[in-house]
Amino acid sequence: MTKLLLTLHVLAAIIAVGPVTVAASMFPPAARRAAEQPGDARALSTVKLLYRICRVYAGVGIAVPVLGIATAGVMGVMGDAWVIASTVLTMLAAAALIVFVLPGQEQLIEGVEGVEGAEGAGAAAAGRLAMTTGLFNLLWVAVTVLMIVRPGSTTGA
């Protein structure tokens, strides 16, 4: 059972988190290009597609911590420091995505579309979003390192 859960956990991380990190990283420069080229339908559709990828795969990404907790429970390592640290970092990454990245993307799309009252569609907002997205990605890097190195683990890794 452990091997199955671990396999599903890793696959979920690759399939769900990977696209979000890539699409979120591609979004700020794409939004800048769309803002510089008002009326360019292709640039706007690219930005909307990247946002949709982030939103959809963020929902699918819920499977990653669920499967991770199930795997850690079966392995009997729920109280290990690396599991606790990974869980906290995962929660921080999810919060960053939900509170900053997705709303920032939505705000930039509204600005590019010219929605009345939409503010911050400029380069400064795209820069802030790029920074927040970078922090989101760094949190996932830290989780990945903890999953591989597992400090204090007695499993030989």
Score class of each variant (00 low, 15 high):
Thr154Cys: 11
Ala63Glu: 04
Arg33Asp: 12
Ala24Cys: 05
Met131His: 15
Gly134Ser: 02
Ala13Ile: 03
Val66Ile: 12
Pro65Trp: 03
Cys54Leu: 08
Ala130Asn: 09
Lys3His: 15
Thr46Val: 15
Glu113Tyr: 04
Leu49Met: 15
Pro103His: 05
Ala23Tyr: 00
Glu119Leu: 14
Arg55Met: 08
Glu113Gln: 11
Val22Ser: 09
Leu139Thr: 00
Pro65Val: 02
Gly76His: 05
Phe27Ala: 02
Ala81Cys: 10
Met26Asn: 14
Asp80Thr: 11
Ile98Asn: 14
Tyr51Pro: 13
Gly79Cys: 04
Gln107Pro: 09
Asn137Ser: 08
Ala13Tyr: 11
Thr144His: 09
Arg32Tyr: 07
Gly73Gln: 12
Pro19Trp: 02
Gly39Glu: 01
Pro29Lys: 05
Leu97Cys: 06
Thr133Asn: 01
Leu102Asn: 09
Glu106Ala: 13
Thr154Arg: 13
Gly39Asp: 04
Met91Cys: 14
Val17Arg: 00
Leu5Met: 03
Glu106Ile: 11
Ala95Ser: 10
Val10Thr: 14
Phe136Ala: 03
Val77Phe: 01
Gly68Leu: 02
Leu135Val: 12
Val22Lys: 04
Gly59Cys: 02
Tyr51Asp: 15
Val20Asn: 07
Val88Met: 13
Val20Tyr: 01
Ala12Pro: 15
Met131Asp: 06
Val17Asn: 00
Ser153Cys: 05
Ala58Leu: 01
Thr71Asn: 14
Ala35Gln: 13
Leu102Trp: 13
Gly111Arg: 05
Val83Lys: 10
Ala72Asn: 06
Gln107Leu: 07
Asp40Val: 05
Leu8Tyr: 12
Gly18Trp: 00
Ala63Val: 07
Gly117Ile: 10
Leu49Val: 10
Met1Glu: 14
Ala72Gly: 11
Arg33Asn: 11
Gly117Gln: 08
Arg32His: 08
